Amino acid sequence: MGDRLSPGDIAPDFTLPDDTGSQVTLSDLRGGKVIVYFYPAAMTPGCTTQACDFSDSLESLRADGYTVLGISPDMPEKLAKFREKEGLTITLLSDADRAVMTAWGAFGEKMMYGKTVQGVIRSTVVLDEDGTVSHAWYNVKATGHVAKLRRDLGLE
């Protein structure tokens, strides 16, 4: 597992495919604020709740200057089905080899049903206009996370 990011860190750059196969490069988004969240798997209950919450909040987040990127190990084809099935409006990215998740501290050991396993650690990292981490949360709960995020960012 990579080290977890903390406020003040420069976020590692990446280029990942979205659900259409187009490449998205983080550094291309400099000049705006970015919310990057990592989730274990498309079309599972918790991940669907979280993705729908971000989609439902996207217009107000955009109005406050934020772009939202959701990253999972799912292939672009599965992400496209997820977007279509749930009517998602956020950008979904595929990190199939988990390299970005590892670099951002969002993949590694976690507890699942009382056992230690290797997997995606549900995490959210907020970047300022320069690509510097302003907030980082690890092991977040899917339900209610977007509301907490908005409160912590002073967007209520």
Rank of each mutant, 00 (worst) to 15 (best):
M1G: 15
D3T: 13
D3N: 15
G8Q: 10
D9S: 04
D9P: 05
A11M: 11
D13G: 01
D13E: 01
T15P: 07
T15A: 14
L16V: 10
P17V: 02
P17E: 04
P17K: 03
D19S: 12
D19A: 09
T20M: 09
G21A: 00
T25A: 08
T25L: 01
L26T: 09
D28E: 15
L29V: 01
G31E: 07
G32T: 15
V36S: 07
Y37V: 06
Y37W: 10
Y37F: 13
F38K: 03
P40W: 02
M43W: 00
T44M: 02
T44V: 04
G46Q: 05
G46T: 04
T48Y: 05
T49A: 12
T49M: 12
Q50C: 02
A51H: 08
C52H: 03
D53H: 09
D53W: 06
F54D: 06
D56P: 00
D56F: 02
S57A: 14
L58Y: 09
E59F: 00
E59D: 10
L61F: 04
A63P: 00
Y66G: 06
T67D: 08
L69C: 07
L69T: 10
I71E: 07
I71D: 08
I71F: 03
P73Q: 08
P73W: 07
D74F: 05
M75A: 14
E77V: 09
K78D: 14
L79E: 04
F82R: 05
E84F: 00
E84W: 00
E86F: 07
T89E: 10
T89V: 03
I90K: 08
T91M: 09
T91Q: 13
L92G: 05
L93N: 13
S94T: 11
S94Q: 10
S94F: 07
D95I: 14
A96Q: 15
A96P: 12
A96V: 15
R98Q: 06
T102H: 05
T102V: 13
T102R: 14
W104Q: 05
G105T: 12
A106V: 03
A106W: 03
G108I: 12
G108S: 13
M112T: 03
Y113V: 00
G114L: 04
G114E: 03
K115H: 05
K115C: 01
K115M: 09
T116A: 13
T116R: 13
Q118K: 06
Q118N: 08
V120P: 03
I121V: 15
I121K: 10
R122H: 02
S123I: 09
S123M: 09
T124C: 15
V126G: 03
V126S: 04
E129N: 01
D130Q: 15
D130S: 15
G131W: 03
T132S: 09
T132G: 04
T132V: 13
S134C: 13
H135N: 14
H135I: 09
A136W: 13
W137L: 08
W137A: 12
Y138K: 09
Y138L: 09
N139F: 07
